[in-house]
């Protein structure tokens, strides 16, 4: 069956960017846009774990929102960034989000884990550990810990069952703890 899903997959992107949104009228910059852009960038960074890639994703998402005339809302910006990220990876034929099943391990509450560790920020340990995580692990961790999303909200954004999110977050934190512990031993 011939299927054309609703997400744009690119085409002549550069040409489109150059010619898009041509209008002479200036618009007012929405209130709180700096905070929103910072937030969007950080989410993009959690997906790509690369500064340049995160800026590109943010710019693409902004252009998409401008083109669609949608409101400047965090949930919409995040969803757009996510779609653009998936598009880019599809185009490069990379494996992105692996199939996730709710595991057998008991899911912890999203905000329940407060384990302590030595200051791993100082020597780049945390950065090394985060880059070792899978995209969906890093994304879930970011949304839960940094943005304060509930499992329900993450499930909605990522189109995954809530139980899977809880399980994923639990496993991710365990994995992160293991990675940081291993890193310390090496050091």
């Amino acid at each position: 069956m011939f299927v054309f899903p609703g997400v744009w997959a690119g085409g002549n992107e550069s040409a489109m960017r150059m010619r898009a949104f041509e209008t002479s009228a200036e618009r007012a910059v929405p209130q709180g846009i700096d905070t929103l852009l910072d937030s969007g960038y950080r989410y993009a960074f959690s997906l790509a774990h690369d500064a340049a890639e995160a800026e590109d994703l943010l710019q693409d998402a902004c252009l998409s929102i401008l083109g669609s005339g949608a409101k400047w809302e965090r949930s919409y910006l995040f969803a757009t960034i996510r779609n653009r990220f998936i598009d880019r990876y599809r185009r490069n034929r990379k494996i992105l989000f692996l199939s996730l099943e709710a595991g057998d391990d008991a899911p912890g509450d999203v905000t329940d884990e407060h384990w302590e560790t030595a200051d791993v920020l100082l020597n780049g340990q945390l950065d090394r550990a985060l880059v070792s995580l899978r995209v969906e692990e890093r994304e879930t961790l970011f949304l839960a810990v940094v943005e304060g999303y509930t499992a329900e909200e993450i499930a909605e954004l990522t189109s995954r069952p809530r139980g899977t999110i809880l399980s994923l977050l639990h496993r991710t934190k365990a994995k992160l703890r293991d990675l940081l512990g291993r890193d310390r031993k090496v050091l």
């Binding site: 150059m18 910059v29 710019q59």
Partner: peptide, 11 residues
């Protein structure tokens, strides 16, 4: 750059 894009609608 992004704010300018939002203001003018031109990337």
């Amino acid at each position: 750059r992004l704010k300018q894009t939002i203001r003018t609608g031109t990337p």
